[in-house]
């Protein structure tokens, strides 16, 4: 782990979709339907606190970023778009 999969273009949305697919056990068709407005924590019953903790760890590993406790609030996990924008901002430094 620790690096982006070789078979993706590597953009933030694509990699984040792949991670969500791994966590939620979803196929490519279902993931393609994810938009910036798709709700996450509180909207997907599978995403409890344990699953979100796993999701954040996997995001850290694959994007090589560190997510602090203070970064994590309801808004961060509200939607796919919010999480994608957060990661893009972290990557931009």
């Amino acid at each position: 782990m620790g690096s982006m999969p070789d078979d993706t273009p590597g953009d933030t949305g694509t990699v984040l979709r792949a991670i969500l697919g791994d966590v939620l056990g979803l196929g490519a068709d279902q993931l393609a339907a994810f938009t910036d407005d798709t709700g996450l924590f509180g909207h997907l019953p599978e995403l409890d606190s344990m699953a979100v903790a796993g999701l954040l760890t996997e995001i850290e590993d694959r994007f090589d970023i560190v997510i602090d406790d203070d970064d994590v609030d309801g808004e961060l996990l509200e939607s796919f778009g919010a999480l994608r924008a957060f990661i893009a901002a972290k990557l931009a430094g």
């Binding site: 606190s49 344990m50 979100v52 903790a53 796993g54 954040l56 760890t57 406790d69 994590v72 609030d73």
Partner: peptide
């Protein structure tokens, strides 16, 4: 150590959802 960090993070997230404060540290 990484697995512990994840367990602590899950606990902190759940506590925040319940309106409590606290950090993993």
């Amino acid at each position: 150590s990484s697995q512990l960090r994840q367990l602590l993070r899950a606990h902190t997230l759940a506590a925040r959802e319940a309106g409590q404060s606290g950090s993993s540290e």
